[in-house]
Amino acid sequence: MKQSYLIVSTNEKLTDNVYKMTLTGDMSGIERPGQFVNILLDGLFLRRPISVCDVEGNTLTIIYKVVGKGTEKLSKMKGGEILDILTGLGNGYFTDLSGDKPLLIGGGVGVPPMYKLCKCLIDEGKTPTVILGFNTSKEIFYENEFKALGVNVLVSTVDGSYGIKGFVTDALREVGEYTYVYTCGPEPMLKAVYNAISTSGQFSFEERMGCGFGACMGCSCKTKYGNKRICKDGPVLVKEEIIW
């Protein structure tokens, strides 16, 4: 973990309520894809945890959905503004277990962390397949960005307005052989993926947090390997330890 003052470069709307922000500054705190940052905003007591979508050099990309006061404030920020951010929080995804053909499954705002993970896996010479799940075509973002990485991308929409009709697990049936699964999304989706996959995998969870760095025990969960803090020992849990 590192505290950094990052400068907002861009902040653009991707869909009705999803925004993409890029920031520049010291990124040395970020060690792994699947980690998150915790952002302090004027007038709000607690920081807001947001997953890392991408980090290259001194540039951070986050994608966030406006769901409350914090993300509302974030969406109004302009280039040049400075944010107090704790970077490199959480354990993140470990790529060494992936095998040659990892499958990445992101649902809604669970899509962003898949992007940096996908780049890392490609850099390691692996051939990822990506499933992106959304409710409807209007909510889709980052399909082209993933395609530009040269990977096979399947998109599912619950209402069938784009791509495969149904859930990410419906798209899963159209994927051939895979060696490992990485996933992030709403808990019902994670559970469905857990039950549908034939390999091991890593699952990224969400919980309402206090500090975001392991001090307050606000986001604890029970696992087969003992009690864990989603913010510090997670957010990524391995399939074998998850208790639903």
């Binding site: 607690l46 309402r208 206090g210 307050c216 025990m217 606000g218 986001c219 604890s220």
Partner: peptide
């Protein structure tokens, strides 16, 4: 283990917690 989650609620200039002595 403490109390079920959510255990944290933000307030103006503070927060409510209900960790339950984990």
């Amino acid at each position: 283990f403490g109390n079920p989650t959510p255990r944290i609620a933000e307030c103006t200039s503070g927060l409510i917690n209900s960790i339950g002595l984990q």
